[in-house]
Write a protein that binds this DNA or RNA. Structure first.
Lengths: 113, 113
DNA sequence: TATAGTGCTACTATTTTAGTAGCGCAAGGA
DNA sequence: TCCTTGCGCTACTAAAATAGTAGCACTATA
């Protein structure tokens, strides 16, 4: 796989942290726009590049491709026959956010109070 | 509080989604650089603006302030006498990521395989 | 041979973030 | 009273990320 020098990687300094601590690499990676959303959209089933682009409301292909590169290098996503899919590792991460949907509804409700 | 028109808010269209679904607003909000990191750095104790800036490895004050505005509007963060602190809502969200530190270590280990 | 769908790359325009300087305020000494 | 210190921030320019659009190369199917 072509290496993307911008992919936050544990063990290497990332934007905003020279320690190389995995958590910093992870937060940096997930803090890129669309990264969380992509994991979210892949939660149920694999999607092709274009289907994923559509699911992400027309995100530009250059950004999508760049993000997918990073997520692939991080081993959260892989390209299968059925399209882009979460790896077991990616599923674990996604599960950390699994209850987020319902929680977001609760959050929205509490903002309306 | 001064309204920041850019703060992703449930019920309103956000970047990349016109549905107003809370999960989309949440992902949009957390997808801004430093948002996740700020919640992370506040996990244990309140921090002053400058302490928080330092904890985030010198993030520029304009960005920090902008992000804090959004997090305050989202009611994840509030400004107390002791400095910026997570609200109960913010703590709940932070807890969703609570096991992330250890998980990130595991992730890093699996990348080294 | 055309048609449609795929995964992208290339390019410019716009927005976001980084980086630095410094203001106005409050508290605490000398 | 006049310094100094630390606070929350604003203002500004430079750099980087993202948006938006066009279209290429490839494959499969008709």
């Amino acid at each position: 796989m072509a290496k993307n020098p911008k992919t936050p990687t544990p063990g290497k300094p990332v934007r905003g942290s020279t320690t190389g601590k995995p958590i910093m690499a992870l937060l940096d990676l997930l803090g890129n726009r669309w990264a969380l959303r992509i994991l979210w959209e892949l939660r149920d089933a694999p999607l092709t590049f274009r289907a994923l682009q559509e699911a992400c409301d027309g995100v530009s292909p250059s950004v999508l491709n760049s993000r997918l590169k990073s997520l692939k290098e991080a081993r959260f996503v892989e390209n299968t026959d059925a399209g882009y899919a979460l790896t077991p590792l990616g599923m674990e991460l996604q599960e950390k956010f699994g209850s987020l949907y319902q929680w977001a509804e609760k959050w929205a409700a509490s903002l309306r109070e």
